[in-house]
């Protein structure tokens, strides 16, 4: 016997049942199941997760899921986005029942995130450029460098290593100061901001630069301009580069994980 399920894309602010067309995973027909003023965006399927060992296929499904979230956001405003492959066993009534039970929580979360979108900010720095700048502005460092070059070879080697370590520390200090400054400036202007651990893949245009820090933040369209200007300031410094992506549904800020 085939067990029915509903694949969940997002929860949106809508009180009506609507058909969004065949825009889902593998061209599934996507529609909304409302409860009061909330609705789940779903497609109907068998109670089997979408699973494959084929990377291309997996990417395609994930992008299709992402597309539905974007379409729902364009139509209904900020959504509560679901992870890939979350299925609810049962029919539309089971989804409505779930919405009913989670209503208070879902409603307050949608209210909290209303009008906001998520953005990622990655900051890179050019070590050599910052080091050169530092040598120019700090005559003591430049002097030390000349002194070392005049030493006998053996001693010069050790001192050179020490000098390089010192320089690296100062460059990193300088870079961190810029990042800290940017963080607190953005913090004042956005709803939420977090430092992200690790860095995602490096784009070709940043290949000569080192990753400094990544932030993920939540803000509205009105707050965008000022934040964009702050990022522009950092990006226009030749020692730094900024990658700014979004808007995303609030994947990193929605708080509805397994209770």
């Amino acid at each position: 016997m085939i067990v029915q399920a509903r694949y969940l894309y997002s929860v949106v602010r809508s009180g009506s049942q609507e058909n969004l067309g065949n825009i889902g995973i593998q061209e599934s027909e996507v529609y909304t199941i409302p409860f009061h003023d909330l609705a789940a965006v779903v497609h109907s399927c068998e109670a089997q997760p979408y699973d494959t060992r084929d990377r291309r296929q997996a990417e395609e499904w994930v992008l299709e899921h992402s597309y539905v979230i974007d379409q729902a956001t364009a139509k209904y405003g900020t959504v509560l986005p679901f992870s890939f492959d979350v299925l609810l066993k049962g029919d539309d009534a089971a989804v409505r029942d779930w919405l009913c039970r989670g209503y208070l929580h879902l409603n307050s979360e949608l209210y909290r995130l209303n009008d906001c979108a998520e953005y990622s900010i990655q900051i890179y720095y050019d070590y050599h450029l910052l080091a050169e700048d530092l040598m120019k502005t700090n005559p003591e460092l430049a002097q030390l460098r000349i002194k070392i070059d005049q030493q006998p070879k053996g001693r010069a080697y050790l001192q050179k290593r020490q000098f390089e370590m010192q320089l690296r520390e100062q460059v990193l200090g300088l870079a961190r100061k810029t990042a800290d400054g940017l963080f607190s400036q953005i913090e004042k202007r956005c709803r939420e901001i977090r430092v992200e651990k690790g860095s995602s893949s490096k784009k070709e245009r940043f290949k000569d630069k080192e990753h400094l820090v990544s932030f993920v933040c939540l803000f509205t369209d009105e707050e965008m301009e000022e934040i964009g200007d702050l990022l522009e300031d950092v990006d226009s410094d030749p020692g730094f580069s900024v990658r700014f992506t979004g808007p995303w549904a609030p994947f990193s800020f929605v708080r509805l994980e397994a209770e």
Partner: peptide
């Protein structure tokens, strides 16, 4: 985002 974040259900 889709694999590591977003809502998961009870």
């Amino acid at each position: 985002r889709l694999l590591n974040r977003g809502v998961i259900l009870n």
